[in-house]
């Protein structure tokens, strides 16, 4: 089984059109699958040609997103995140 690639979503809060949901910013998940390059929506939204960016489906546990006291910590959330919002990180310790 392939090693999971863990990624942390940047915790930035820029103004303007962004497709990275606020509730995932600063959270760490792993790459569920890679989707290939897509034009950057943050540029498309303002009438500019979109720079091609890799898009990834990242999977987060409910515990990571909402804290360990969440009702079902092992349930998951998958979201598509562009790579300029992602920073590779070391795998967290086994939970």
């Amino acid at each position: 089984m392939a090693e999971r690639q863990f990624m942390r979503v940047r915790a930035d809060m820029p103004p303007g059109h962004v497709r990275t949901p606020a509730y995932l910013r600063g959270k760490t998940g792993w790459v569920e699958r890679k989707l290939g390059p897509f034009p950057n929506p943050e540029e498309l939204a303002y009438g500019h040609p979109g720079t091609a960016l890799d898009l990834m489906r990242v999977r987060f546990t409910m515990a990571e997103v909402w804290g360990p006291k969440t009702a079902f910590p092992k349930d998951t959330i998958d979201a598509e995140i562009y790579t300029h919002w992602l920073e590779p990180v070391e795998p967290p310790h086994a939970t």
């Binding site: 989707l35 929506p41 898009l55 092992k74 349930d75 998951t76 959330i77 998958d78």
Partner: peptide, 14 residues
């Protein structure tokens, strides 16, 4: 409770 729920947030191009 034994079922895992997977939520998919349709945030981008899919």
């Amino acid at each position: 409770d034994t079922t895992t729920v997977r939520v998919h947030d349709s945030t981008a191009d899919m």
